[in-house]
Design a protein around this nucleic acid. Structure first.
Lengths: 347, 347
DNA sequence: CAGAAATTGGTAATCGATTACCACACTCCC
DNA sequence: GGGAGTGTGGTAATCGATTACCAATTTCTG
């Protein structure tokens, strides 16, 4: 176990320097030696030790990534896209989950830094509590935030353009005839929660629809169900509900239907993310698709541009998403909440 | 950038040996020196270089994991569980996706070995094509297979007891009154596909139900939909369908309903995995829950037992799963395929 | 053909943490 | 007080790949 370059050199009858040079091709060696070395390497099954190389080169070819939870399909999709992007350049991914806890997050950041990752991609779990650890890490290694970000951004960020996203969602339900619209999202503990709510409010004002008081809980199916019950128990049912993510939307649709409200005939529902089960649910969810592959590519690209030594202004890249119209929203109509399915064929 | 133990030693006015000993506590030092060293380390913000430690110790504290795809929610869940288990012992996870391609898988195995991971957890993508690369890796480092495994197992494996799983599923639908049952799964390119089909056939024989010709495609929603259409187009509709995983089941339910077949009134449908959206779909899916957390714990435990130097017989750990009855199956009945919703309250 | 220039091989330093080994100081006991 | 025994600090080797530097040889040039 463990054939080293010394073994190869000895077997080929040359010095380690020649062996190294023959294998890496970074300096010329006589064809004769090149031949002997590569034959010896092949025979011994030599595989360079990446740890030793990393120590010497002061670079590991490894990128650390921290997301709140791998269970969340949205983060899974990002992880997959990032992993894919890194492979293109021969780098590997050290993956960690912070379990939505800033203390765990800080600890994981430390171990990734100790492992001397060449860069970090992180979706900070808490807009406030994550700040010190993230800024400290950003001082030591190129760091890019994805999706979520911390306050007082000293670090680069790439994510979705929430304003554009919510504008599309609101305009879509407005075009479907909605006059009263409710936003169901998460409590404002992270940047996504905040900017989606404010994006919604701006969009509602611009579209001239009546935005009722938002319902804020968590980014979970359970909260979606509860929010649905709250709407059923309230005195007015909105014409449309725009949700902070897909899980909420799915739960909400379920609860409304159980309560006898028809979706989309009585109420249109729009989700956010479009990862996995949005299309799988019944009825398939109208939602805003996050441009995950682009986000990952952009994050990896940015990572290559950051130079810790000479700080430049933090970049913020907001990628415009696209609304995917499926069957939880009335695509186009003139009437109010009492329209029949009549206009459906138009879209 | 890069405070080393030499810097700490110099600042504390001691040798590197003392500094190292003071910090690791592996040998006694005078309280005086311990104090000076830890103060110096704190002031300089010293953080040991894990790469150097790994080179010296010949162990990286890193486990490599390769799954066919992170997009598949079942694998995601396993990854999350493994990551969780590793954290308990202070180890980190190097994650790779093989994209269901044996050549990519082999390449990723190589880079993980070059990075000197302390162990490997893998779900080989192909029961035949994955064999050489996996066996070769197993010769060099402790390796445990999860869920899927390769033929002629020279390596440990932990997964679900497919026989027990399928027995529970078949007995459940039989108890619900089903006489004719169809299995819808994946083509037999990996071990799960094979053992689930054979488990189904054994269970059907034992339960005395009539197993029609299985429909084999892929582990995807799309194949589920197509299989549903095939059933609709065929001349006999079974009383129940047992599926190879949840995506297939969800697609199947959707297709059957679209075709006017009631689930579970006309046909019971049972899935496999119970990850994520099984509960989120409408109606919530009856399925066999994979004991993912236990599987991950067992895999990590086994990893600690493997000694590459003295090979012992390969372990195979099959964990018994549990059937989760939701609403795509008739829980109990005496009648055939024509029962009304009447008996529902019993469960 | 002498000497400069180019090419190529080898030796040893380097990356940073750990630790085997040695040296020194101190205690204890006869 | 001297020798054995114990505790503690320092020096330098180690892990494995890379490469700066030097030395030796070949090639080129006037």
């Amino acid at each position: 176990m463990g054939v080293t370059i010394h073994d190869v050199a000895r077997a080929a009858g040359v010095s380690v320097a020649s062996a190294s040079r023959a294998l890496s091709g970074r300096r010329k060696v006589t064809p004769e030696i090149a031949e002997r070395v590569s034959r010896a390497a092949a025979e011994l099954g030599y595989q360079p030790n990446a740890v030793a190389k990393a120590l010497r080169d002061r670079t590991t070819g490894t990128i650390g990534m921290i997301v709140p939870g791998i269970g969340n399909p949205f983060f899974t999709t990002i992880v997959e896209a990032v992993e894919h992007q890194l492979q293109e350049t021969g780098r590997d991914l050290l993956l960690c989950a912070s379990q939505y806890r800033p203390d765990v997050e800080a600890r994981r950041l430390e171990t990734l830094l100790a492992r001397r990752v060449d860069g970090l991609i992180i979706s900070p779990c808490d807009i406030e509590a994550s700040v010190p650890a993230v800024l400290n890490a950003a001082r030591r290694v190129p760091l890019v935030q994805v999706d979520r970000y911390i306050e007082g951004g000293g670090a680069d960020w790439v994510g979705v353009d929430d304003d554009s996203a919510l504008a599309q969602a609101v305009e879509h339900v407005a075009a479907g005839g909605a006059r009263v619209v409710t936003f169901v999202g998460s409590r404002l503990m992270n940047s996504s929660a905040r900017s989606r709510l404010s994006g919604f409010e701006r969009a509602a004002a611009r579209a001239g629809v009546n935005a009722t008081a938002p319902l804020l809980g968590e980014f979970t199916l359970e909260w979606g169900i509860e929010a649905g019950r709250l709407l059923l128990d309230g005195d007015t049912m909105p014409d449309a509900v725009v949700c902070g993510n897909d899980e909420i939307a799915v739960g909400l649709v379920r609860a409304l239907r159980t309560g006898g409200v028809r979706v989309p005939d009585d109420v249109s529902v729009v989700g956010f993310d479009d990862v996995g089960h949005a299309a799988m649910c019944d009825p398939p969810l109208t939602t805003v698709r996050q441009p995950v592959e682009e986000m990952a590519a952009e994050a990896v690209r940015l990572l290559g541009q950051v130079r810790v030594s000479d700080p430049r202004p933090a970049q913020r890249v907001a990628i415009a998403p696209r609304l995917v119209v499926r069957e939880t929203s009335r695509p186009v109509a003139a009437g109010g909440a009492n329209g029949m399915g009549k206009g459906r064929g138009t879209a």
